[in-house]
Amino acid sequence: MSALLSSPTLAAIALLAAACQPATDEAVSATQITETPMTNPVVHFEIPVTDMDRALAFYEAVFELELDRRETDGYDMAFFPRADGQYGASGALAQGDVYRPAKTGVILYFDVTDIDAVIARAASRGAKVLYPKKNIGEAGFVA
């Protein structure tokens, strides 16, 4: 679990803890906690799954990367690669009693170098395109 805690995460935790405490002269300011502004505040996400073996095989094949599978806090999890000290988020696939996959809720966007290849790999593994590829200008494409 310690691999998930980077400086911005610790700053966010410290700010949360400070917000729950009464104000004192000893209160720590945000600038004392971190020297870098937190421009991308999301540092971790978890994707609920019901079949970890199937989900792990799917995500590794579609994105051509290796996830780190391990038990964390009693839950079966598979962590996406993370570049510590860099802005942006990483996360994990998660299976357990508190994780319920759904078609509604948060939508995650993965940055890829070739969206057509990713769509093709996902389709070859049984995925359905719910939102067809669309040009979104300077940001590229989304699907």
Rank of each mutant, 00 (worst) to 15 (best):
M1F: 08
M1W: 03
A3H: 14
L4M: 13
L4H: 05
L4N: 13
L5F: 15
P8G: 09
P8I: 06
L10H: 09
A11T: 15
L15Q: 15
L16T: 12
A17R: 12
A17Q: 12
A19W: 05
C20K: 13
Q21N: 11
Q21D: 10
P22C: 08
D25P: 00
S29I: 01
S29H: 06
A30K: 06
T31G: 01
I33Y: 04
I33C: 06
I33S: 10
T34I: 14
T34V: 09
E35M: 04
E35Y: 02
E35C: 04
T36W: 01
M38Y: 03
M38N: 11
M38V: 14
T39M: 05
P41Q: 09
V42F: 12
H44C: 04
H44L: 12
P48H: 09
P48V: 10
D51L: 01
M52F: 05
D53H: 05
D53M: 01
A55V: 06
L56A: 02
L56K: 15
A57K: 13
F58G: 05
F58A: 04
F58V: 03
Y59N: 08
E60W: 10
L65R: 13
L67Q: 10
R69W: 06
R69G: 09
R69N: 07
E71S: 10
T72I: 11
G74E: 06
G74C: 04
A78S: 14
F80M: 06
F80I: 09
F80K: 08
P81Y: 11
A83M: 11
A83F: 07
Y87G: 11
G88R: 05
A89L: 07
S90W: 07
L93V: 08
L93M: 10
L93F: 08
A94K: 07
Q95T: 01
Q95D: 02
G96S: 07
G96V: 07
D97G: 12
V98P: 01
Y99I: 06
Y99C: 13
A102T: 15
K103C: 09
V106A: 15
I107M: 11
Y109C: 02
Y109A: 08
F110R: 05
T113N: 12
T113I: 05
T113H: 12
I115A: 09
I115M: 02
D116Q: 03
D116T: 04
A117Q: 07
A120F: 01
A120Q: 09
A122M: 04
R125Y: 04
R125P: 01
G126Y: 05
A127R: 05
K128F: 02
L130R: 08
Y131F: 09
K133I: 01
A139G: 00
A139D: 00
G140V: 01
V142H: 00
V142F: 00
